[in-house]
Simulated scan of single mutants.
Amino acid sequence: MTVNERRAREREQRHRLILAKARALAETEGWDAVTTRRLSALIEYSQPVLYSHFRNKDAIVAAVALEGFAELTEALRRARSVSGHARGALTVAVETYLDFAEANPAVYEAMFTRTVPLPFAQEDTPEPLRAGFAEIEAVVAPYAYAHHSATLAEVTWAAVHGLATLTRDHRLRPEEHRQRVEVLVDRVTGRGAGR
Rank of each mutant, 00 (worst) to 15 (best):
T35I: 11
L25S: 06
L42S: 00
L19D: 02
R38M: 05
A22H: 13
A26Y: 14
I43P: 00
L19I: 06
L19C: 09
S46H: 04
H15P: 02
K21G: 00
A24E: 15
E27D: 11
V49D: 02
E44T: 02
K21A: 14
W31E: 05
L19M: 12
V49C: 06
W31Q: 06
Y45H: 14
D32P: 03
L17K: 10
Y45W: 11
A20E: 14
R38E: 14
S46T: 08
R16E: 15
V49L: 12
A26E: 11
V49G: 00
L25H: 10
T28N: 05
R14L: 15
L17H: 12
Y45L: 11
T35F: 04
R37F: 01
T36E: 15
V49W: 10
R37L: 08
P48Q: 07
L39T: 03
A22F: 12
R23H: 09
P48G: 02
G30K: 11
K21Y: 03
E27C: 05
R23Q: 15
W31S: 02
R23D: 09
D32S: 14
Q47D: 00
V34C: 10
A26N: 10
A33G: 12
I18D: 00
Q47T: 05
L39F: 08
V49A: 14
A41G: 05
L17P: 00
A26V: 11
L25W: 09
S46V: 00
A22K: 08
A26T: 08
Q47E: 13
E29V: 08
E44V: 01
L25D: 06
I43E: 01
I18Y: 14
A33W: 13
A20C: 04
D32E: 15
A33Y: 12
G30I: 12
Q47S: 00
A33M: 14
